[in-house]
Structure formats: C-alpha cells, structure tokens
Design a protein around this nucleic acid. Structure first.
Length: 297
DNA sequence: AATTCGCCCTGTCGGC
DNA sequence: TGCCGACAGGGCGAAT
C-alpha cells in the first residue's frame, strides 16, 4: 500500500538513474493499466529525455522532453501492490527472496519481467525501468501537459499532505468535515493527497483521536493536533524510507524500515507502546483500523 | 449535495 | 495435505 512516504522514497531513489536518460524503447504489456490514453500515445515517449520526477500525493509524475522541446508526462499510481524498479545497465537480474511463514523461500521483487510486469521502459545505455503490479490496482496515465492539468484524477486531488501548513489544514478540515469519521476525511484524497490507511491510523494515534470520531466533533485544538500528527507520521515514514509489509520495495529491490516503527497499524491486540492497554482493531471507513482505547478519545 | 457501497484483482492464509 | 473461502485495500462510479 504505497502512500506518500513510499512514493516519495521511490521518487528520490529513482531520480538519479532516470533524470537525463533517453527512452530507447517502451512496452505496455497490460493495456488496462493505461487509462485515458493509447499505447501509441505512450510510444511517443520513445526518443525523449526524462527531465525530472515529481510527486503529488500518491502519484508519481515523470516529465519527458523531445528534441523540439515538446513535453509529455507519464503518471504512475502504484495502487496496492505496485513496484517501480530500476535495472541498472548490464541487465543483471538481482534475484531476491523472501521467506514465507511456512519457511518457503520465494522470489520477490521487481528484478525480472514476469506476468505482473505491465510496463517496461528501456533507456539508452541499458538501464530499464519496470512497473510491476500483481493486484493491478495501480494505473498509468499520460498527458501532453507538463502538469497533467487535463487529467481528471489529478484535478480531484487536494494539496499534497507533506506540503500543507497547519493553517491550510485547518481551513480544509472545516470545509471537508461532516458526519464522516475523522479517518474517512484523512483518507479523502480531495482533502489532502497522500494519506492512506497506515498513516491515517498512525496520525490518529499520534493526535490522541479515535479514528471513528465524527469529523465535525473536533475542536480547533484537536484539528491542530491532528495536523501536527499527520506531519509526524509522514515524516517518520519518510525518515524510515517507507513501510514494507509485503509488496512495497525501493527501485533496487530493498525494503523500507517503517514497519518496525509503527505505533498502531498492524498491531491490533498488542499492547499500546504508550500505556500498555491492548490495542483494538475494527473497521472504520471500510478499512481495517487499529487504535488505543485508552490513549485515543 | 454528501456519503456509503460495490466492484475491480491476486496472493496469502486460516479452517476444515 | 489440499482445497476453498475470506481477507486485504485505493479509487471510481453507482446508489442512497
């Protein structure tokens, strides 16, 4: 479940490899991963140079420019299980394995073109960018506009959650709150872009607020606490280079460390790290949710 | 108009 | 041991 810190980690790690690189070939292997464009649109990227990577929420935006200065944008959402990997020149397959609970060692990671590899970008010099996504909830978008202004998905997004000031958070909370739960608002990409299930739970714990609280019930101080908590949760995720439970990997196939540093997510039934009370697990906003019944109200 | 729900999809795991 | 159903969840569009 790549969220803002995971996508930003991918962006940072991918940038040195792809910036300035020229697309030599490109293959879309599963058509339905591409939305609102055709594979021949994508093929117009062949011969162009990658001029930079940016990110908005959970979306990664790769900019390309051809010799005449015409710009195109390749946008990727990693969905639930998406992996973007960089195979360095030389083409060696870096096999990696993970151990299942059964003890079986299973090949994992993005370093081979298998049935889940939906997009392959070959760069001059031999580097390859692979987009792999077993559950196919990810998407590939294409735009001729450098900001992707014509993409409805991007237009719907609120400001990036990592860029937002406390004042903007407050202003937007007032606009988006209602009968919905606090967690539902945090997950709403139109409120802020980039928060998913992990960081929503972590932020609520950090703020001492139950995810199931009605969003209109927060005081001004509570909203301010939540704004700060979101920054802390995302910041820790970034410092730890993302959360790896199953599918998320860095472009080199390694994993993040934030799963070792989570306060509540995936810790249902375990003692609260702050007070020792057993953490509760339930469903809020149709998502598995964990909270401390003592620390969060 | 705001909110919820069903659906997409595959790998993994618990139960029988 | 093996099969099968349940589960996970981001985002969209339909339904309420």
């Amino acid at each position: 479940m790549p969220e803002l810190p995971e996508v930003e980690t991918v962006r940072r790690r991918l940038l040195p490899s792809v910036e300035g690189a020229v697309v030599q070939d490109l293959r879309l292997r599963l058509d339905r991963m591409l939305e609102g464009a055709t594979s021949s649109d994508l093929e117009s990227l062949i011969g162009t140079t990658c001029t930079g990577l940016s990110r908005h929420g959970k979306y990664l935006l790769a900019r390309f420019r051809d010799a005449r200065g015409t710009v195109a944008l390749l946008v990727i959402h990693l969905g639930m299980s998406g992996q973007l990997s960089w195979n360095p020149p030389g083409g060696e397959i870096l096999d990696r394995f993970r151990t299942l609970p059964s003890g079986l060692r299973k090949p994992v990671g993005p370093h081979s073109i298998d049935r889940h590899t939906h997009l392959v970008l070959d760069f001059q010099g031999g580097g390859k960018l692979l987009f792999r996504d077993p559950r196919t909830f990810g998407r590939i978008l294409f735009s001729r506009d450098p900001e992707g202004s014509d993409l409805a998905r991007l237009a719907r997004l609120g400001p990036d959650a990592w860029q937002v000031s406390p004042a903007i958070f407050l202003e937007r909370w007032k606009r988006h709150r209602g009968v919905r739960t606090v967690k539902a608002v945090l997950l709403d990409q139109g409120f802020l872009a980039g928060i998913g299930n992990i960081y929503a739970d972590e932020a609520c714990f950090e703020a001492g607020i139950r995810p199931s609280r009605r969003s209109s019930s927060l005081s001004r101080a509570g909203i301010a606490r939540l704004a700060q908590a979101v920054q802390e949760a995302l910041g820790r995720g970034l410092d730890n280079c993302g959360t790896t439970f199953r599918d998320f990997v860095h472009p080199d196939g390694s994993g993040g460390a934030n799963q070792e540093d989570l306060r509540v997510y995936a810790r249902g039934g375990k003692p609260c790290l702050r007070c020792g009370t057993l953490l509760r697990k339930g469903v809020v906003a149709s998502r598995g949710t964990v909270w401390c019944p003592a620390c969060q109200s």
